[in-house]
Design a protein around this nucleic acid. Sequence first.
DNA 1: TCGTAACTTTACCAAATGGTAAAAAACTTG
DNA 2: CAAGTTTTTTACCATTTGGTAAAGTTACGA
Lengths: 209, 209
Amino acid sequence: MRETPVSPPERKPSRIQTENRQRIRDAALGLFATQGFRGTTLDQIADACGMHKPNLIYYYESKEAIHIDLLNTLMEEWLSPLGAMDPGGDPLEEILGYIHRKMEMSRLYPRESRLFANEIVQGAPRMLPHLESTLKPLFDSQCGIIAKWIKDGKIADLHPAHLIFSIWAVTQHYADFEAQIAVLLPGDDKRARGADQFVEVMFRKVLTP
Amino acid sequence: MRETPVSPPERKPSRIQTENRQRIRDAALGLFATQGFRGTTLDQIADACGMHKPNLIYYYESKEAIHIDLLNTLMEEWLSPLGAMDPGGDPLEEILGYIHRKMEMSRLYPRESRLFANEIVQGAPRMLPHLESTLKPLFDSQCGIIAKWIKDGKIADLHPAHLIFSIWAVTQHYADFEAQIAVLLPGDDKRARGADQFVEVMFRKVLTP
DNA sequence: TCGTAACTTTACCAAATGGTAAAAAACTTG
DNA sequence: CAAGTTTTTTACCATTTGGTAAAGTTACGA
């Protein structure tokens, strides 16, 4: 029995704490991604990670705390490819590289993609501040890089912000709308490669001056 | 008191039935779109359309029935622009026209777009059969039209299915991810026009052989 | 205009759900 | 290994929520 639960931990989290929080996040990620926040119950999360409900609350003070921690934890690694565009590199290859990395993420981390999709579609109730403070500055900076490439005539003259939107839209579509794509384009095996090729060809055409 | 509720109606629905079902659908649409199915309560729907909860159940036998009716009712008008592509028309203008209509729908009917987005992101639990039976044949047929245009050298050689996916992705992104776009690109007034122009230019480049 | 069917409202209910209390078990450390 | 601390488990609880029962009210055709 403890009066003050260990979450949030006063000092350093123990090994068990680190592990179990990770287990919880991993289970919650899949459920939140496909059922949304309200569509997911604590019992489901507990089941999925082989723990009991009160144990979740021992590590996270509420269901919402799990969701928030997930969003915050995943946000930066989700955005990291955007920041990786190098202003000194070859413009066309930098952007195509970014697109390639986004496609890879859609394939490897569809749960993360859908988690964010759910959050944004529903008006980003828990992420708006984070979008303002973290995404916006990065976005503006990368738009600036693209604008310069355009001014230098290295790539086609397109509105940088809308260009990034279209990249996000197309690449994340493959993760977020997979259920639909699976119906319309059966034949699992080579779908990913076909998508990669298409996106590469499409954006190369778009970006070439 | 009635033993057999009037839903589903045995014969022809009365004027009041038609009106009230419409009121319910309209209220439910906005709520399901931004909160998802499980995130929306019957009380919220009742509130939003100025009715009492049991009254909803008088017109729809369950919350799920409202959701299903919404999806079915909106599906065909949502898809109608795709079917409107004319195999006899000018290929480039037909596709660009379709894109234009999709952008318009994103602007005019964001709730419908988000309703479907929610449904698909969550694995289309209530729409999979409908996708198979209604969307798939239409999709295949329109892919066929595009394939022929490609074979005739009228537009660039791109995988028709992925082309349509990219059109859906980009156009619907403006409705589904509006919360994010509003943060990244403030200044409401000319955002829609900028988006329209961008998308037009982008796909014209992509489609031109 | 009157009777009946259609519609609305009030008062409920059972199950699900987020969360708590506190005892039991396991682990750590002097 | 003993004492204290952390972690897990069992038993609950209050609220929310989808839905029902049934009485009250309105609309409408004969």
